[in-house]
Amino acid sequence: MDFFQPPSADDLLLRQAGQGQPQALTQLVQRYQALAYTVAVRVVGNAEDAEEVVQDAFLKAFAALGQFRRAAKFSTWLYRIVYNTALTKKRAQGRPRELPLTPATPEPPATSGDGWAAVRHADQRKYLALALARLPPDDALVLTLHYLGEQSIAEMCTILGKKTSALKMQLLRSRQQLEAALIQLLPTDHQHLL
C-alpha cells in the first residue's frame, strides 16, 4: 500500500462502488466491458457466447468485489476472471472454434497506389481481422491484450497465468505470425499496412 500516491480514479470508483453507488458501478462496467468482450470473443470465438461469458464474469467479479485485495489492478483481476470464465465456456462447448466475426473470403487485393489507399482506409480492419483469425486463438489474444488493451507483460502474466519468459516468447512469435499472415493475404501491398 503506497501512502504517498493519491488514490487512482479506479480506487475512487471502487470505494464508491463498495458503498453501492450505481454511478460508480456503471462507470466500472462501461470502462472495462470492451476489452473484456474482446478477450471473450478471442477465446470462445463468437459474439453470443462472448456476451454470455462477459455477463457471467462481471456478475461474478462484482459479487466478489469485497474479496479484491488490490494485489493487482482491478482491471487485471477482472480480465483474469473473464479469461477463466471464457476458458470454462470453451471447454464446455466441446467443439471447434467458430469465427463468424470475420469475413469469409477476402476481396482481391488492390495493386495500384489509388486502389491501395482504398484498401488501407476501408479494408484495413477486414484484412487485420482475417490475419488475426489465422493465428492460434492464444496468440491473437496475446496481441490483443498487449497492443490493443495496453496491458503490460506482468499484467498479462497475471491474467493468463503464464510465466514472463514464456509470454515474451509468445508475443514475439505472435507478431511474426501476424506479419506472415498479412503477407500471405496481401502479397504485394502488405508493406503499406505494416
Binding site: P22, L25, T26, V29, Q30, Q33, A34, L35, Y37, T38, V41, A47, A50, E51, V54, Q55, F58, L59, F62, L101, Q124, R125, L128, A129, L143, T144, Y147, L148, G149, L193, L194
Partner: peptide, 23 residues
C-alpha cells in the same frame, strides 16, 4: 495497425442490460 482496428464492442442493448444487472 491493431489500434486502428480497435476493440470489439458489445451491442448497446447488451451493454445496457449488463450495467442494469450489475447495479
Amino acid at each position: 495497425l491493431l489500434q486502428a482496428q480497435g476493440l470489439q464492442q458489445p451491442s448497446a442493448a447488451f451493454s445496457a442490460a449488463l450495467t442494469r444487472q450489475v447495479v
